[in-house]
Design a binder for these strands. Sequence first.
DNA 1: ATTCCACAGGAAACAGTGGTCC
DNA 2: GGACCACTGTTTCCTGTGGAAT
Length: 406
Amino acid sequence: MSGVDDIFDRAFKGKSLVRNRQTLNIDYIPDRLPFRDDESNNLALKLSNVFKGARPSNLLLFGKPGTGKTAVVKTVVDRLIKKANELGIQITAPIINAKEANTAYKILYEIAKEMGTDDKGPKDKREEKIPFTGLSLGEANDRILRHIQKNKINMILVIDEIDSLVDKNGDVILYNFTRANQRMAKGGFISLVGISNSLTFKEKLDPRVRSSLSEEETVFNPYTIEQLRQILSTRAKMAFSEDAITDAVINLCAAMAGREHGDARKAIDLLRVSAELAEREHAPRVEEKHVRVAQDKIEKDAQFLAIQKAAPQDKLVMLAIARSKNGFTGEVYDAYSALCKKIDHEPLTQRRITQIISEMELLGVISTEVVNQGRGGRSQRIRITVPLATVKDALKDDPTLAELGY
DNA sequence: ATTCCACAGGAAACAGTGGTCC
DNA sequence: GGACCACTGTTTCCTGTGGAAT
């Protein structure tokens, strides 16, 4: 075991390049967000109605991922609540991610959880409680509004990734909440703050929701490479030990993340993984080569996980793509059916397989291209974009595929 | 100009699960 | 205990598509 002990010894004695690891975490929000003063002030201004006892306008914030939308909302709302508490004004501000709570009912359940009226809440208040399932949407909605009205609750409801609600009949909720204030004459209000990655999602909304939801709008522009550089530089000063990192590394991280629409989260993650790699090989400092390896690793890890965690049927489809000659849809389906037959599984329909294929394309593990062969019909040519070794590695422990001798 | 191929992908329906309500 | 509800994964049905063949 001396080899293992040696490794542990070296790790223990080796120099730690990072002294404040938490600041490299994607979820870490610094006290002041660089380059987002205008947006923060703007949001604060719009929410500040509550100090006059009025309902703030509903708001929509747009911007690509990693442009600081959620962080701005979190910091501003946090201070708003603190200030309100000092002044004796009660405000509750649940922040709900609509991608995680991805159905209308789940959103309502999350709000109830935040207010303490979910199924774990007090037993006597049945008419205000929201169980995990079993109620109609209308009833769940009514119960929440009843609770808000009865207790005169002032709520700023933040829905992150609000665009993912629209396709799943979630705009019913948005409609109800934006209109709820008219019903709450006796006190209490709901003000909605929506955060969206997609600028175009509004077009899909019910026109009545659209008009009340977009009372105010703010667009978050992507960070420039220079801004990313400064953000990383500040973060690196907090996170790294002295001389553990060079400007060149920061520049490279900024440039790499900047190429993909100025995503600050990606830039920081790249820095974190680079540091981990450097520490693992006991390097005296993080160098540019670590960044390049880190970039590669982040990409590969994401693809590896996407394949490894895929449903059994998805893995079979992946295998079928690998086995088909040209990767045309028909061929892939035939190969998939053959695989199913071998392991005695009932194959899914071709319609479902095309759906799985487009889901896999979204994950970035395959690519498709429309091929028109005239009378030979129209089809897609499907290709695996992940190195075959990664695919094999990700699939090697799957018991279903083991039956196929894979 | 028309026909035809092999699909893509939208919409609606359905089955199964896990729950509440009365 | 039966009626009802949300939700997910799936099937069924159907319309639309672009270019080679006729």
